[in-house]
Design a protein around this nucleic acid. Sequence first.
DNA 1: GTGAAAGCGCTAACAA
DNA 2: TTGTTAGCGCTTTCAC
Lengths: 359, 359
Amino acid sequence: MGTMRLGEMEEGMKGIRALARHLDISIGTVSRALNGKPDVNPETRARVMEAARALGYTPNQSGRSLRQGVTNTIGFMIEMSPDANASGDDFFMGVFEGVQTVLNRHRLDLVVFPCPAEENPVDYLSRLVGRGMVDAMIISATRRRDDRIDFLEKTQLPFIALGRSESGPDMRWIDLDFEGVAHSSVARLVAKGHRRIALAIPDGDINLGHVFHDAYRAALSQHGIAYNPALLFRVARVLECGDDLVTALLALPELPSAILLSSEVMSLSLYRKLQERGIRPGRDIAVIGFRDNPRTSFLTPSLTCHSISLSDLGQTLAETLLAGIPAFADLYPGRDRNLIWPMALVQGESDDFDIVPER
Amino acid sequence: MGTMRLGEMEEGMKGIRALARHLDISIGTVSRALNGKPDVNPETRARVMEAARALGYTPNQSGRSLRQGVTNTIGFMIEMSPDANASGDDFFMGVFEGVQTVLNRHRLDLVVFPCPAEENPVDYLSRLVGRGMVDAMIISATRRRDDRIDFLEKTQLPFIALGRSESGPDMRWIDLDFEGVAHSSVARLVAKGHRRIALAIPDGDINLGHVFHDAYRAALSQHGIAYNPALLFRVARVLECGDDLVTALLALPELPSAILLSSEVMSLSLYRKLQERGIRPGRDIAVIGFRDNPRTSFLTPSLTCHSISLSDLGQTLAETLLAGIPAFADLYPGRDRNLIWPMALVQGESDDFDIVPER
DNA sequence: GTGAAAGCGCTAACAA
DNA sequence: TTGTTAGCGCTTTCAC
């Protein structure tokens, strides 16, 4: 032993045992050397590190987790149903990036669990969490009442939700500032003379629809505008909502002068369908989109919407999660349990006209 | 024991041991009952299943994998750099869905590893694979030469690539039919009288650029058109390529009469920038996009492009992967090691004009 | 500073 | 049909 070619392991040996045999030391020492424990001869440590590198040794995670009770992995559950995925395509990529920035500091890895559209989200979550692959979870697309939250609280697994919910009043969460978006949108429109302001929200139980709806009502009321249920549109498929939306708009006795969208992808089909019917966004009807999105940025007229740094959101999400894990809590002392994430209005041309022309 | 309330485990006990204690039988029997082994009294099995359900027991995956040497989990590595992510991410969502359809048949789960843009893909892959969380890998965004492939071949972990590469000539892969796309696009344009046909491909070493480029040259040659390097555009950021592309087009002595795109998201900014310069897609220049995408479907004039069933692609990807894993190989006997995935031309209006008007 | 050994939760081989 | 036990790879006592 000790005379084998690089890249070869001892016959019939695997993992740390092969490495130890190869170096002619005990597996305990190898483990301590690799894990940076202080009581290891520097020279021994160097030999171990070098051999590990040369042989491409990586510790088996199952062995480690079994022993340590920790996996150093954080899970992020996303849903693939178009309904839940209204946030648009680049959204999660951007958030992942930010989350990983923080996790990397602690040598934690992020794994994503994509829940199939047909599968029950709770069953899916409990199956994957039950596997014990993760030390904590991030969930998204929260429902107004969300059984996943009850489940996670029962398991005592640390978690955070990207999105608030009526379930789990004590859980950690971060959500977008729908209130702020509704208020600034309505204020802006009212200042331009608008009174008939419609709202489109996703159908179903995704909570953002409810939250946005409430915020919209509050904003209207603040400006002394009566809430008109006829101006609320629940759309089934956000990506192809244009048809239904425009049909519904035209069925009204009078076209609203403005419409707020609660998902950026709504703007795509809405623009098209409006134009097909000869209704010009930004001229015949004011449109305020939701989030700034590279994929809506080419729309003409340019879409007034709200911007956000996805990476920052992801970082804060991760930090707030870690603040709830005993092993990391000390490092993130100031973190609140939950947070409304502000969004900044980006002025476009899609709502840039006054109802009462100045003279 | 046996008299505790539901939802409670024996004091200080966890996992299968607590369950066994609770039922007053041995852990071996519990394990066999849960795993559907034949030699278990049906009544015992029923009791075990019921108790497991009631107590919310899920076997710890680390324990299982350690013992069985398999994890029943398949990994899918994606990259978050905008460069590698030219496909738009409804692409991966669609593929995941198909992959999971197949994996579910075998009670395998899919986990996604999102590689941060700043991290070296090989380091990332080796770290996550090294953890031993997966039995097989799917990789995407293959480079012309791709060290990940060499790495995976060395580890002997079964894997498949979504995208071909010059590395790993014997590996399993499925790739989109860039040749077919190039040929049908060029043929269609040539039939309309086009001779000056440009191509936009992503800059960098992502292989699809090279493959598309080669296919484009071959298609031109087949129609007796000389390849003109001035009509090849390498774009840095596919999402915001419009600016550079239009500037480059206008810098040419003569505007090409048509342009082929190798990524669907290119069309968004290209349309906008063309229109800003007063160049009308479908009138002044023919545009053929790459993949049919719900998010480009609202473009006016409608984009001629190529369509694909992402779910079917995902299913075939998964089946081809499983065909390479001994435990499943028998179930998928007919699968080729690799496959060019056909795409169907979807006629739009973005290239619907003739260079030589008919009379 | 190092080695020996226990044990994390689970399954499979074997004994009963 | 069930119980007992070894051992998967690893880390962490505890001796030395």
